[in-house]
Structure formats: C-alpha cells, structure tokens
C-alpha cells in the first residue's frame, strides 16, 4: 500500500469521524443530507458484499467494517435519534434517491468488467459513490450558513478522492498491468464534483470568512 492510498483512506475515515463527532456531541445534523448518507450506506453495502468471502488483509476488513457500521449509524442517528432528528433539514434535502440509483444500476449492468452478480454490484457501488455527494452539495448550496464541521466533512471527503487519484497514478507506474478504467473514470467524475466546493472552501479559508456557496 502506498502513501497516497493510505492517506486517502485516513482522510475518508476522518470525514466519517468528523460527521459522527458533530452528530454525537452537538446532537445536531443540521446541514447534513440524509439522502447522501443513505446513498453511502447503499454504496458500502453493494461494494463490500465480498467481506466474508474475500479476505485481502486485516486492514481492509476492519476498514470495511468501519465504513459499513458508521454509514448505517449516521443514517440511524438522523432518522431515529430523538434529539438529532429534530435538526434534520427535511425541507431543503429533497433530492430523489431513485434519480441517482436507477441510472447507476443500469449503467453497471451495461458497463462492467465481468457480468457476475458481485461484480455488477461492485461496479454499481463505484458509479453510485461518484454521484452520492450531489444531494449534500445541493443542500450546502441551499443552506445560508455552513458550519465548520459540515465544511470539514465535505473537505475531507474531497481530499480522500484527490488522494485516491494520486494512488492510481502511482500504482499505474509501479505495478504491471494496473489498468482500471471503470474505477478511474468514475473516481475522476466524483473528484470533479468537489472542484467547485474546494474553490469556495479555500477562498473562505484564505480570506478568513464564513463558508458560503453561491446560489
């Protein structure tokens, strides 16, 4: 495992921890899109179907368990926790799951590396992860004031994507036959979705003003 891959995993982990910390300590999920969180839970469920049959390393298995567990925990908090759920911004979080899930599933059926069930679900999870942040970005745009933790959550997620691209470039040059078009293209699309956010995030940080996305 190279440094980019490991740093990418760690920023991914940080994003989840920041979010859980916010929800757990402040007992608030203001500014967090339930739709995005539910899509992530679905992404991990579809991708880690092989968690018991395909052992890669202890690190991999533990990280998979963390991502699965935390994504369902976050969804549970927003939907079920009696205090947290009151802060959920239902009026602005109106993105329809199906608009993202259905096209991704059809695309996975059409474009995949191997048409086995697990392989199609894995491909579906890649496509869905690429666009799962959209409801969150839409919600951020509609929310006037983005609090620091929500901003950091999206920042860490974007950093994770950028580091994974560095990891693929590194692996391409250091490992023989390392070519994964589906992973790369969906990963690139996903990272580009953050570009706009990053621009405003750095600007607000540079000028030391509160993060606000233009409508």
């Amino acid at each position: 495992m190279n440094i980019f891959r490991f740093s990418g995993d760690m920023t991914h982990l940080m994003s989840v921890l920041v979010l859980l910390l916010k929800i757990h300590t402040i007992k608030s999920c203001a500014g967090i899109s339930l739709k995005t969180q539910e899509l992530y839970a679905l992404v991990f469920l579809a991708r880690y179907l092989d968690i018991v049959t395909n052992f890669i390393s202890l690190y991999n298995t533990i990280m998979k368990l963390i991502f699965l567990g935390s994504s369902f925990m976050i969804v549970w908090y927003i939907r079920r926790h009696r205090i947290v759920r009151r802060s959920y911004d239902k009026e602005h979080d109106t993105f329809r799951h199906l608009f993202l899930v259905l096209p991704c599933f059809i695309l996975a059926l059409l474009i995949n590396e191997r048409s086995a069930f697990k392989e199609i679900m894995w491909t579906f999870s890649l496509y869905l992860e690429a666009v799962a942040i959209l409801p969150q970005l839409v919600l951020l745009q509609r929310t006037k004031n983005i609090d620091n933790l929500t901003g950091q959550y999206v920042f860490f997620l974007g950093a994770y994507r950028a580091l994974y691209i560095c990891n693929w470039i590194y692996r391409y040059f250091t490992e023989p036959h390392y070519v994964h078009w589906i992973t790369w293209i969906s990963g690139l699309v996903q990272t580009l979705l953050y570009a706009d956010f990053f621009y405003y995030y750095f600007n607000s940080w540079k000028n030391n003003v509160k993060l606000q996305l233009p409508a």
Binding site: N54, K64, R114, E119, N167, H177, V179
Partner: peptide
C-alpha cells in the same frame, strides 16, 4: 487476468 478483479481498494 483474475488478479485484475481482486478489489483491494476501499
């Protein structure tokens, strides 16, 4: 190439 489909990333 079977190894190609070994998804070792998260």
């Amino acid at each position: 190439d079977e190894g190609k489909l070994d998804h070792d990333e998260l």
